[in-house]
Computed example of a mutant assay.
Amino acid sequence: RQQVMTLAADEFIRRFLLHVLPRGFHRIRHYGLLAGASRQASLDRARELLAVAPPVDDDGPEEPLDTRPPCPCCGGRMVVIETFARWHQPRAPPANATPAGRKAP
């Protein structure tokens, strides 16, 4: 929530200096316990020091992953009947195809 307010000079400087780092410090966004490739080791060490139970290892789901997209209407899994090459227009139906609603002889 933002609001306009008037501050005395000393209060403004006090609030501003809360955001200034001490001499010799640098502001780095991706630094600390959860940073970089050592994240898992750091979390394991923190759990050890805090005597927290390790997380349950759930290597994968018991059921195979279904990569088919869900139907936007019913939520069931759609069946892919054809895929198109990237950057190409889909081809037209064959010339000998029967019109919709008619049976082939």
Results as ranks from 00 to 15, higher is better:
103 K>E: 05
63 E>L: 04
46 A>I: 11
80 V>R: 01
18 L>W: 09
53 A>T: 15
14 R>H: 14
98 T>F: 00
11 E>G: 03
71 C>N: 04
63 E>C: 04
65 L>M: 08
68 R>W: 03
16 F>W: 14
68 R>Q: 08
89 Q>L: 04
75 G>H: 02
105 P>W: 04
43 L>H: 11
29 R>D: 15
16 F>R: 12
14 R>M: 06
25 F>N: 10
67 T>A: 03
63 E>M: 04
29 R>S: 13
15 R>Y: 13
92 A>N: 06
95 A>Y: 00
35 A>V: 02
45 R>Y: 13
8 A>G: 07
33 L>E: 14
37 A>R: 13
30 H>P: 00
9 A>Q: 13
53 A>C: 13
2 Q>L: 08
93 P>D: 04
32 G>M: 15
59 D>S: 05
44 D>F: 07
19 H>M: 09
38 S>C: 08
97 A>S: 10
25 F>M: 12
47 R>Y: 15
42 S>P: 05
15 R>E: 15
45 R>V: 07
6 T>H: 10
27 R>S: 11
44 D>W: 10
76 G>I: 01
53 A>M: 14
58 D>T: 10
60 G>Q: 06
49 L>Q: 07
91 R>H: 02
60 G>Y: 04
12 F>D: 14
38 S>P: 12
62 E>Q: 02
9 A>T: 13
97 A>D: 06
29 R>E: 15
68 R>I: 02
37 A>T: 15
14 R>Y: 12
65 L>G: 05
57 D>C: 06
4 V>Q: 09
24 G>D: 13
104 A>R: 02
94 P>T: 04
29 R>M: 10
79 V>F: 03
43 L>M: 14
38 S>F: 13
61 P>C: 03
87 W>R: 05
50 L>P: 00
11 E>S: 09
6 T>F: 10
19 H>D: 07
20 V>Y: 08
92 A>E: 11
64 P>C: 01
73 C>V: 06
41 A>G: 13
23 R>H: 08
92 A>V: 02
41 A>Q: 13
44 D>T: 15
42 S>Y: 09
31 Y>H: 14
57 D>S: 07
42 S>F: 09
6 T>S: 11
53 A>K: 15
83 T>H: 00
60 G>D: 09
36 G>V: 03
83 T>L: 01
91 R>K: 05
77 R>G: 07
70 P>N: 09
90 P>F: 01
58 D>Y: 11
22 P>I: 11
95 A>W: 01
6 T>V: 12
59 D>P: 03
12 F>W: 15
98 T>V: 12
79 V>N: 05
67 T>K: 04
43 L>Q: 15
19 H>Y: 10
24 G>E: 13
105 P>E: 05
25 F>G: 03
9 A>R: 12
18 L>C: 04
53 A>D: 15
60 G>P: 01
40 Q>Y: 10
42 S>I: 04
98 T>G: 00
16 F>I: 05
15 R>L: 14
54 P>R: 11
97 A>C: 08
3 Q>A: 13
67 T>W: 08
99 P>E: 00
99 P>I: 03
72 P>I: 02
32 G>D: 06
85 A>F: 00
8 A>E: 14
88 H>M: 01
28 I>A: 10
104 A>D: 06
41 A>S: 14
93 P>C: 00
80 V>T: 10
46 A>W: 15
93 P>E: 02
85 A>Y: 02
39 R>L: 14
29 R>N: 15
74 C>L: 03
12 F>L: 13
